[in-house]
Design a protein around this nucleic acid. Structure first.
Lengths: 200, 200
DNA sequence: CTAATCATGTAAGGCGTTACATGATTTT
DNA sequence: AAAATCATGTAACGCCTTACATGATTAG
């Protein structure tokens, strides 16, 4: 592969690639069950989608414009409250196809970042009783989340979302993992607190 | 709070805050058991610290210079192979104190980003058998990691790192969580694959 | 009548990634 | 003889966050 060949393969007139980012796909995923307004999408990206992929307004609105430019969504505006129009966004056929083909691609691995585990690596360099308090507080945080998740599961199961054919089965499946993760973290924090109590 | 008051509270002559980032603390944590060269730190930030907090060379070397400027590490150079000096970095007393006080502060929560779980939320919009293949492949990835972790645990336990007093207890504790997480994800992926098989 | 919510956008700056650069030593 | 490793650094760019801006409607 020489330089001249590369130039020949990439015409100068070509516009920016503008491939869809994960955030873009997250928005498309949020729209897969029907149209939503921008503001509704902002709320969805805090909850429930925000549990595994968050975004703020300042990212969402420009991204919606990009998705519309790419022809993956249609955005129609109606006058609403305030100085802005209330825009409703809907998947196009191309958008629906883009999501479907992205979903079955293996996820690109992300660099892990967990501050609590990092601190644990150097646990020996800190005061044991202070660290113990930290892990107990974290355990409580996870146990509170666990309660929240259990309530959500009850509601989903009542609607029949634990059946693979139900439109909310995806939400049920993500919740199932969330329950496991929170329980695991809570138990691990309590185990560490016990260890620090025994040795300190 | 008026504008004039704010100006009075923030003197013009103050230098940039230059507070230590999490990456900075990660490097300080890596040094808590003894001095290391820059290149050794680069490797540590791929493994084992890289399992929960990664960084590349291009981030690490400038950050080391900043930590030295702040007086948290001392960096002494000796001539080594290649055009560069082999720099050895060591914690100062101030650095040791900085780690100790950071460790016992509650970790700042990070926005969650998990592409696989995001895909799961919209699982109904994709072809079931293709998604099933995806989850089976992910399950295998996690099971391979699980084997790797089990081997590491065996080595650590042989050294006695499962005792809270051992200097490698921190590494053992992080590994314990890693084992739980990988097992949980693997089982969840297999469960989802089963669900998709039953309904598809 | 005040505050929160609805509703959409812009700007500045930080963190992190890929890619580039250099060159000696050790391994294959 | 070629490739990988040792060893440190710079530059460009993208994603994401915080903060700013505007103003109508609804709830307390």
């Amino acid at each position: 592969m020489t330089a001249s060949q590369e130039i020949a393969l990439a015409p100068v007139t070509a516009p920016a690639p503008a491939s869809v980012t994960v955030l873009g796909y997250a928005l498309l995923c949020a729209l897969h069950k029907g149209p939503l307004t921008g503001y509704e999408l902002v709320r969805r990206m805090r909850q429930p989608i925000g549990y595994y992929w968050t975004a703020r307004q300042s990212q969402i609105y420009p991204e919606l414009a990009r998705l519309a430019e790419l022809g993956l969504i249609t955005s129609s505006g109606e006058s609403g409250p305030g100085p802005h129009q209330r825009m409703t966004h809907d998947l196009t056929a191309a958008g629906r196809a883009a999501v479907a083909s992205w979903l079955i691609r293996p996820p690109t691995p992300r660099p892990p970042r967990d501050e609590l585990v990092l601190k644990t690596y150097a646990v020996g360099a800190a005061d044991s009783s202070a660290m113990r308090a930290l892990y107990l507080a974290e355990a409580q945080r996870h146990e509170q989340r666990l309660e929240d998740y259990r309530a959500q599961r009850t509601r989903l199961v009542a609607r029949g979302a634990d059946d693979q054919c139900h439109p909310d089965f995806g939400a049920f499946a993500t919740l199932r993992l969330g329950l496991g993760v929170e329980e695991l973290y809570a138990q691990w924090c309590r185990w560490l607190a016990d260890q620090l109590a025994a040795g300190g």
